[in-house]
């Protein structure tokens, strides 16, 4: 089992969701986040006083999947989120030691799907 965490551009969320649904990945958690990578921040001005802002708005996806879904999920996220510009985001894959469905108490890969 793997936990896939992806940081994407907020305006690409609908595309990524659509791509994931097409890849039969229906379960995810989405949160608002701030982040910075190679994409440089920008400066904001408040009453004439300039302020550097280096954290930009991002959307964070968390998706827990069984091994055979790892590659299709990664491909789907790339398909939905890629524009070729800096700031497209990143996908992290971590191993997931355990997964439990709260309602039934099922564990492991049965609980994920």
């Amino acid at each position: 089992m793997k936990l896939i965490i992806a940081m994407i551009q907020p305006h690409k969320l609908p595309d990524v969701k659509k791509a994931l649904f097409e890849a039969d990945v229906h379960k995810m958690t989405v949160t608002n986040a701030l982040g910075c990578g190679q994409q440089r921040g920008f400066s904001e001005t408040y009453r004439g006083v300039i302020t550097e802002v280096n954290l930009l708005k991002k959307v964070r996806l968390e998706i827990a999947v069984n091994e055979e879904f790892v590659e299709p999920t990664i491909k789907a996220i790339i398909r939905g989120a890629k524009t070729g510009n800096i700031g497209d985001g990143k996908i992290f894959v971590t191993t997931l030691d355990e997964c439990i469905r709260i309602r039934t108490g099922e564990k492991g890969s049965a609980a994920i799907g």
């Binding site: 996220i77 894959v93 971590t94």
Partner: peptide, 12 residues
Amino acid sequence: LDLAECVRIRTE
């Protein structure tokens, strides 16, 4: 945590 994989979306 251990990170099993990392993908840059722009360049893959």
